[in-house]
Amino acid sequence: MSLISTVEAGQARLSFSTRKNLLRAAIVIAVIAVWEMAARSGLFYRDVVPPVENIVAALAGILVDPAFYRNFAITLGEIGVALIIGGTLGFLTGIALGVSRFLTKAYEPLLFYLGPTPKIVFFPVLIMWFGVGSGSKIAMGAISCFFPLAISVAAGIRSIDPVLIRVGRSFRLSTWQTVAKIYVPAIREPIINGIRLGLGIAIIGTVLAETKLSNQGIGFMIIQTYATFNIERMYGLLITLFVFAIGSNALLHRFTRR
């Protein structure tokens, strides 16, 4: 009997997820259709809202362009390094704040005020410190993703059931063992959510910095197409950026589940 109910539940889930995917496809198709109608209506400049087929053609052109891959790799590398540096620092800061009431009192307000501040205001300083190359972009990305990770890790640690810490103490765990065996596994979900938020903001920070002052990267390519009024190609590049952002986030989301 339990077998039957499991099978039924499986079918229900399958049809549910199929329905969900259909609904998602529908919204994408709807957006494309509205876009196409807007393009054909003549209400907008053809260059500002080009027909879908032109964008697709531009996208195809981008995907066979070696320059795109070179620039994309540069941006990807910058984001990756930014995530490693900013993420690690954010994680350690979060642990320290979560464990120490004193540090929390001293620093957490700072974190809360600086966190939502647009990090682009630091960019001129970062250019002076790290140069116009990848260094300043990495620094932008790192600063961006530091905050969400620090805040969510600290909050995660504070939400741990205190009896679990007492269990650790009764088994005579060292501080390091307590962090590795209790704190970190207990806050797996906040950590991954922090990385997801951090990744999003690191992408924004890095690409935004590239659009401001640089000679390489996706952000640079986008601002170039804009400056030369190659709007179809600009849309194509934006789509690749969307796909990358959504794809990497979805990948991280899979880790939240056990």
Partner: peptide, 19 residues
């Protein structure tokens, strides 16, 4: 401080949910 000879079972729910 916690002594090696003593093992404790707590009043509260204390299993590690991720294990």
């Amino acid at each position: 401080g916690p002594h090696r000879a003593i093992g404790m079972v707590f009043q509260e729910e204390s299993t590690f949910p991720w294990r």
